[in-house]
């Protein structure tokens, strides 16, 4: 990690100095533990504030939308895939970007850390042998694998698919991961069980739209939830409206979602929003052999029609 940040700063400094970019989008320390925040570094002193550790889960592709400058962007595996989608969907052009690729071994889930430490977390340090959590009168070392974000634990694209500079050699990709165990469990449920499952899943939702705001795919000038003519979805906390919002948002992500986990990370109520997008991500893979953001040469799978597309799913 220390090596990463040194290299990130070195590259950022160089790019700014050589005026190859107008700004660097990366992370700096947040005001509370485990909450690094995105930052736009435009000067050498800004660069000094850049950090890299296992709390950089926010997807930085989200900050590229419709920007006009030349940008150096720090990109993990998932960020890079979303940058590809952003380029394909005309949210930014490839020429505007210098992608600083960061091989990633997963980000930690602050809720899991809190739960594992059993106290209010005051400070978190990453050591080679684990994560050291300090709280009032407590100091505890936790294994990183135990507190990884759910999506990171099953990630199979840890290395950026696209980059101009790399801060380190690629890390080994995880092999033999069962990515969809949870989706299959829901699929196997009876309609009544499913109904109950989703009812409980969404019951805490307060319709704050944090999941939408954190998602790099949600960049429409006017989101369907904000439109009133026609009113696609009611604006109340009625469970039907809430469900409609989540279903439709998931559909908008179908064939485009990279399972970056930003939505779950952003949710203040701790809802596993990925339960929706992941099913569609699985279907895109199984029906169309498609993983989003892997290539600049192909539009997202649902944007195209091929005569040999499977049709059993609509019968």
């Amino acid at each position: 990690m220390l090596a990463y940040i040194t290299k990130i700063k070195e590259i950022s400094d160089r790019l700014l100095k050589e005026q190859k970019v107008d700004l660097i989008i990366g992370f700096r320390k947040g005001t509370i533990p485990m909450m690094n925040e995105p930052c736009f570094a435009k000067t050498a002193s800004d660069v000094k504030n850049l950090v890299w550790d296992s709390n950089c889960g926010i997807n930085l592709a989200n900050y590229l939308t419709n920007r006009k400058e030349k940008i150096g962007v720090i990109a993990k595996g998932c960020d890079a895939r979303n940058i590809v989608t952003h380029i394909l969907e005309n949210k930014i052009s490839r020429e505007q970007l210098v992608i600083i690729g960061v091989p990633c071994k997963g980000m930690i889930d602050r809720r899991k850390v809190s739960a594992a430490s059993g106290c209010e977390v005051a400070e978190v340090l990453e050591k080679p042998d684990g994560i050291v959590v300090k709280g009032p009168g407590v100091e505890k070392t936790i294994k990183k694998v135990d507190v990884l974000q759910d999506n990171c634990a099953i990630c199979i694209h840890r290395n950026p698919v696209i980059s101009d500079e790399m801060v380190a050699d690629p890390v080994e990709e995880q092999k033999g991961v069962d990515r969809y165990e949870d989706v299959r469990r829901v699929e196997a449920m009876s309609p009544e069980e499913k109904w109950k499952y989703f009812e409980e899943l969404l019951s805490p939702c307060i319709r704050c739209y944090a999941c939408r705001n954190a998602c790099p795919l949600c960049y429409c000038p006017t989101c369907f939830v904000d439109e009133s003519k026609p009113q696609w979805v009611g604006k109340t906390l009625d469970p039907i409206d809430t469900r409609t919002f989540h279903f439709l948002r998931a559909y908008h992500c179908a064939g485009r979602c990279t399972d970056c986990g930003s939505c779950v990370r952003a949710c203040p109520m701790g809802i596993d929003v990925r339960a929706f997008t992941k099913k569609l991500e699985k279907d895109a893979l199984e029906f169309f052999g498609w993983e989003a953001g892997m290539s600049l040469n192909e539009r997202p799978t649902l944007d195209t029609f091929k005569p040999d597309d499977p049709d059993h799913l609509i019968k």
């Binding site: 369907f224 696609w232 979805v233 039907i240 409609t244 439709l248 559909y251």
Partner: peptide
């Protein structure tokens, strides 16, 4: 559109 299906169900 899925919205139509959801609207009808609703």
């Amino acid at each position: 559109s899925p919205k139509f299906a959801l609207a009808a169900l609703r």
